[in-house]
């Protein structure tokens, strides 16, 4: 991993003493700092706390908020809690995955987005709910996803694919959304 990351981690480790109970708080700090858990960092933590690496690895893979791979710039959490499910959360998730173009692991190739399903963000009264980074959005129907994500996309020159497609198809052309025919 980059030297700079290790450099960030060292001072952070100093703040904790070497008790096992600190394992999860330490990993949370590393996750918050690097947006993922670098392999080297886990080895370092195992040495510090004197626990087997297999234990640290187990904890790091057990809890949902840890990630062993770098995450995108924006973390998009789509709620799949029950209230959101009955109001179409699954469709919102699928739409978000398509719009951001993330792979199976949940991160887009340009490292702009990581999309993740979560089980309830506690705003069930406003379902379906989505959280991008620290902002929670209410009533996110699937048809609103594209618009919502625009503000998180990198600014691109006006020739980008999205802007080329006219908002309303020109008249007299046969409208066919795709090219798979």
């Amino acid at each position: 991993m980059p030297q700079s990351e290790l450099g960030q981690i060292e001072p952070l480790l100093q703040e904790f003493d070497n008790t096992r109970a600190n394992l999860i708080p330490i990993l949370q700090q590393i996750q918050a700092t690097c947006s993922y858990l670098p392999q080297e960092a886990l080895r370092r933590v195992a040495r510090k706390l004197q626990v087997p690496l297999s234990d640290v690895y187990q904890v790091a893979t057990f809890y949902r908020c840890f990630s062993l791979k770098p995450r995108g710039k924006h973390l998009v959490q789509v709620c799949l809690g029950t209230a959101c499910h009955v109001r179409g959360g699954q469709k919102v998730l699928e739409r978000t995955q398509v719009e951001t173009g993330v792979d199976a692991a949940g991160t887009s190739a340009d490292m702009q987005f990581t999309v993740e399903a979560v089980r309830c963000l506690g705003c069930c009264g406003l379902a379906p709910v989505m959280r991008v980074d620290k902002t929670t959005f209410a009533h996110v129907e699937q048809t609103k996803v594209r618009g919502l994500l625009t503000r998180y996309r990198p600014r691109k020159p006006a020739t980008s694919e999205a802007e080329k497609t006219p908002a309303v198809p020109a008249e007299s052309t046969l409208v066919h959304g795709g090219d798979h025919a």
Partner: peptide, 15 residues
Amino acid sequence: CVQVCSGKAILGEKN
């Protein structure tokens, strides 16, 4: 509907 279709499955001329 054409704009939102996730499968790009809707055909039809305007109006």
